[in-house]
C-alpha cells in the first residue's frame, strides 16, 4: 500500500491543526489530529487512553487520584477515547472515579469490552461495567480476545440496533488469532477491530489493516509500546538526527507517530500512570506525520539499533 505524506494527512481532521502551533508553544496542545470512524464519519482523536495495568490500582486513594489526574490531562489535551475491560480488575471503577471528578466530560468516547465465556451473562457484565463508568451507555463495546464471540457479537449488534450502544467491535492482542479476526472482519458487520501494531510488530500491515480499509472498519491499536518495553529498549540509544522530520521529540512520540501514520489506523491507545506521559502521547497526534518513505526509514533505524 502506497502511503505518501499527502495520503497520511488525508483523512485527518485538519481543522484541528490550525490553532495548534501557538498552543504547542505553551506545552498545552489544544488541537489534535483526528480520523473518521468509517461507519459514521464521526471524528476520533488518533491518540486514546488505554487502562491495562495502569488503572488497576484497587481502592488506593493516592493512586486513584493519580489516575484521575491522567484522565483530566487526557481530556485537557484533546483526547476522547478511553478503553477498558472487565478483565482489567479495578480499572473500570478507577475510570468512573476520574470521570466523576471531572463531571463526566461530554467529549468522552467510552470503549469497553465484554469478556465472559458464558454468553448469557454478557448483558449483565456490560451493565456492571456501565455502572462502574457511570455512563448512560457505552459508545463502543468489543468482544475481548474473541471470547465466545459467536454468541456475544450478535447480542452486541442487537444492542446497537436498539440504541443501547453506538459501535460494535472485536479485539485481540500480540498477534493472536489473526486468521479468525480476518474472517470476522470479512463476514460480520463490525465497526471496530482492536489489535497490536507497532514498529516491530508489523504483521497486521500484510492483511488486516488493508482489509480494515476495504471493509470500512476502524482500527484501534493496543500495546503501542509493548507495555513500555519498546521505550525502555530504545531510550538508551539516540533518536535519529532526522527525528524533526518525523515530528517526534522523544522515543515515545517517535513510536506513536509511526503507528498513527498508517492510514488504516484510527486510534492508538497507550496506557500510562503519568500526566507528563499522557501529554507527550497526545502531542504525538499533532503536526506532520511520516509518509511511507519516512516510515521505512524509521523501521530501518530501529531495527539497526
Amino acid at each position: 500500500m502506497a502511503i505518501t505524506r499527502r495520503t497520511a494527512v488525508q483523512g485527518l481532521g485538519i481543522g484541528a491543526l490550525l490553532p495548534l502551533a501557538p498552543r504547542l508553544a505553551l506545552g498545552q496542545p489544544a488541537g489534535i489530529l483526528t480520523r473518521p470512524i468509517p461507519a459514521s464519519g464521526e471524528l476520533l482523536p488518533v491518540i486514546g487512553l488505554g487502562t491495562w495495568i495502569t488503572f488497576n490500582v484497587g481502592d488506593d486513594p493516592v493512586l486513584m487520584d493519580e489516575c484521575a489526574a491522567v484522565i483530566a490531562a487526557f481530556f485537557d489535551g484533546g483526547g476522547r477515547m478511553i478503553d477498558s475491560s472487565p478483565m482489567y480488575s479495578s480499572s473500570q471503577p478507577t475510570i468512573g472515579y476520574g470521570l466523576r471528578k471531572l463531571g463526566h466530560p461530554k467529549r468522552l468516547f467510552s470503549a469497553e469490552k465484554v469478556w465472559i465465556s458464558h454468553p448469557e451473562q454478557g448483558g449483565a457484565q456490560i451493565e456492571a461495567s456501565r455502572g462502574y463508568w457511570g455512563v448512560d451507555k457505552f459508545d463502543l463495546v468489543q468482544v475481548h480476545n474473541l471470547v465466545s464471540w459467536e454468541k456475544h457479537l450478535p447480542a452486541l449488534i442487537e444492542m446497537k440496533a436498539a440504541g443501547r450502544l453506538r459501535y460494535v467491535g472485536i479485539t485481540t492482542s500480540e498477534g493472536r488469532r489473526h486468521r479468525e479476526i480476518e474472517s470476522i472482519m470479512a463476514s460480520q458487520p463490525i465497526d471496530f477491530v482492536q489489535l497490536t501494531y507497532n514498529i516491530l510488530d508489523r504483521e497486521p500491515e500484510q492483511r488486516i489493516l488493508p482489509l480494515a480499509r476495504e471493509k470500512g472498519i476502524a482500527v484501534i491499536v493496543n500495546r503501542p509500546f509493548r507495555q513500555g518495553d519498546l521505550v525502555r529498549q530504545f531510550e538508551d540509544g539516540p533518536l535519529p538526527d532526522w527525528r524533526a522530520e518525523t515530528g517526534a521529540r522523544n522515543w515515545a512520540q517517535f513510536l506513536l507517530k509511526f503507528i498513527i501514520s498508517h492510514p488504516a489506523v484510527t486510534c492508538a491507545i497507550p496506557a500510562t500512570t503519568r500526566v507528563d506521559h499522557v501529554r507527550e502521547n497526545l502531542e504525538a497526534a499533532s503536526g506532520t506525520l511520516p509518509d511511507e518513505k519516512m516510515r521505512r526509514r524509521m523501521i530501518d533505524y530501529v531495527e539497526a539499533l
Binding site: 488497576n56 490500582v57 484497587g58
Partner: peptide, 26 residues
C-alpha cells in the same frame, strides 16, 4: 498454541508499586 504465546508478565495485571502499596496499607 494460543496459551503458548503468553508470557509470565502477560498474566500479571498490576504494577509492583500497586501491589506493594496494597501490602503497606494493609
Amino acid at each position: 498454541s494460543e496459551w503458548g504465546t503468553y508470557t509470565l508478565s502477560d498474566l500479571v495485571m498490576f504494577s509492583p508499586r500497586v501491589y506493594f502499596r496494597l501490602v503497606e496499607r494493609y
